[in-house]
């Protein structure tokens, strides 16, 4: 797959709440084909301590309007300074990067996203839905501020929500949700979120012999397989998360 370095124009910035925003970007030519689970490396200008690019998942692609969407959580200087871009500004991207989630074989699929890990799952649900699948989607966060654009997810599947404090959906961790009482409903589970949550879901899928793919967020320097900084230990040795991931079958991880 060809990778590009392009300046994309900001079309819209949606401030969801103090912690989250969505960037809608367009390119002067037709956007490249992108697959669910892939990410971009974005350059943050005017951020004195942000030397490297920042990896951000593809949140959604609207090919009709040639728009790429990113959902970003402010956690440090880079993601903060980037939140000040305005329409007509340009941001520089290296993209599309990494592998992608595998296609489902039927509707017995569950997407589980925790916190900002829900970002790649919107495009995943969208993509699967374009192929005629209707996934079950479970998104979880600390509180209702972390439940971003549920109406978007509802377009592509059957949405379930949970929050740790019960301010939206059912109360508790994602793995305490009632969906996890029915392993017989699923053949494939796709997960992205904080590592403890992904490990808990992975453990459940292994126990019930369900195929499970997780998307990892290791620290990266180059994003294109050159520096070997982002490695994950696997049954096949150290593999680069940026090129051989970010999506891994949990059976290949030493979790």
């Amino acid at each position: 797959m060809h990778k590009y370095i392009h300046d994309l124009r900001v079309v819209n910035k949606k401030r969801i709440n103090p912690d989250y925003y969505i960037l809608e970007l367009t390119y002067s030519d037709t956007l490249a084909d992108m697959f669910p689970g892939q990410f971009v490396e974005i350059k943050v200008e005017n951020a004195p301590n942000t030397f490297l690019r920042r990896p951000i998942s593809i949140y959604d692609v609207d090919y009709d309007n040639n728009i790429l969407k990113l959902l970003i959580q402010i956690v440090g200087e880079g993601t903060n300074i980037l939140s000040y871009v305005e329409p007509y500004d340009y941001v520089n991207l290296v993209y599309p990067l990494g592998n992608s989630f595998s296609m489902p074989e039927n509707n017995r699929i569950l997407l589980v996203g925790g916190g900002c890990g829900m970002a790649p799952l919107l495009y995943t649900a969208h993509y699967f839905s374009d192929f005629g699948y209707t996934p079950s989607i479970l998104i979880g966060a600390k509180n209702n501020l972390g439940i971003i654009e549920p109406e978007e997810f509802e377009k592509y599947g059957e949405l379930h929500i949970c929050t740790e404090d019960g301010s939206d959906g059912t109360e508790g961790y994602v793995t305490q949700h009632k969906l996890f009482e029915s392993p017989e409903l699923f053949d494939k589970v796709y997960v992205c979120g904080p590592e403890p949550m992904m490990k808990a879901v992975a453990k459940w899928t292994v126990k019930h012999n369900i195929h499970c793919e997780v998307s990892l967020e290791n620290l990266m320097a180059c994003g294109i397989g050159a520096c070997l900084c982002c490695v994950q230990e696997t049954v096949n040795g150290n593999l680069c998360v940026c090129t051989e991931g970010p999506v891994f079958n949990v059976k290949d991880l030493l979790w």
Binding site: P48, N218, A221, N238
Partner: peptide
């Protein structure tokens, strides 16, 4: 090679 983490960003470098 060495175990992860293998990288840390620093002022104007890594």
């Amino acid at each position: 090679g060495n175990p992860y983490p293998r990288m840390a960003e620093t002022p104007k470098g890594m």
